[in-house]
Design a protein around this nucleic acid. Structure first.
Lengths: 132, 132
DNA sequence: GATGAACCTTCCAGCAACGGGAAGGTCAAG
DNA sequence: CTTGACCTTCCCGTTGCTGGAAGGTTCATC
């Protein structure tokens, strides 16, 4: 199948598939005489794997590792679990940061009357010399 | 003061200050005869404002708007509040997405024994044809 | 067989928001 | 006078794509 159909089947844009091939995340696709890339179901399976891992927030580099582990019959499940737990820890950090930001912004927004008058505690808060 | 001291005082790296000047987020600094940038307390105040807004997750473009509002004596507090609430909504979306990711990853990780054996439900999960 | 649309190819450029580092100028201390 | 810590501009690299230009292919239709 052509790249367009592989894109459809994998859920990745064609551009992204070419990009992944460029950076060596997925192996180069077979080519027809015309030069068109030619994908089989096995290739699509790999693309779907990558699409799902990216969708779960794994970086491209992590996807590379996960793919290698996936295709390694002798892999240890522990390696995969470790990668996954590291990613969970990063997500937890990110969530905590965002929640702190949200709290600060919410505090600022609640203290602001929001009318047409120019006095605004949000700007005052941002302008303060000390971080609360 | 030199850019290094302004960096120290504002909490922004010198590189970032130059960058903000480049893209017109902050006005060009005064220059000495030597060509060195020269900052006063007013400039540092602006830089601190930007540093704080960026730290709260406002994009550079939003900072541009906030700065304009900050310096506009006739601004309406409602404009600032709206910007802030939009940012809160974005943060909420982001948090929800991350929590969903975390749940999926956690589910995968918990189902994985994590030992030396090759059978790994995480990889199996990523390889599935259907998203759960 | 010609035409047109819908594909495909490569390459080049750019997004956010900086950071690294080169090549060179300046300043204050010893 | 020299050393070392600053400063200047400039250009490239990052992450993960996305858009567009210029051109080739395929397939249906006239």
């Amino acid at each position: 199948m052509n790249i367009g159909q592989a894109a459809e089947a994998s859920g990745l844009p064609a551009k992204t598939i070419r990009y992944y091939e460029d950076i060596g995340l997925v192996p180069p696709a077979a080519r027809r005489d015309s030069g068109f890339r030619d994908y089989g179901t096995r290739d699509v399976h790999v693309l779907r794997f990558v699409a799902r891992a990216r969708g779960l927030g794994f970086t491209v580099e992590e996807c590379r590792q996960l793919l290698a582990l996936w295709q390694d019959q002798d892999r240890a499940a522990g390696d995969v679990k470790r990668l996954t737990q590291e990613r969970i820890a990063l997500i937890d950090d990110k969530i905590a940061q965002l929640q702190a930001l949200r709290a600060t912004l919410d505090h600022l927004a609640r203290s602001c009357h929001g009318g047409d008058r120019p006095d605004c505690p949000i700007l005052d808060g941002l302008a303060q010399d000390e971080t609360p």
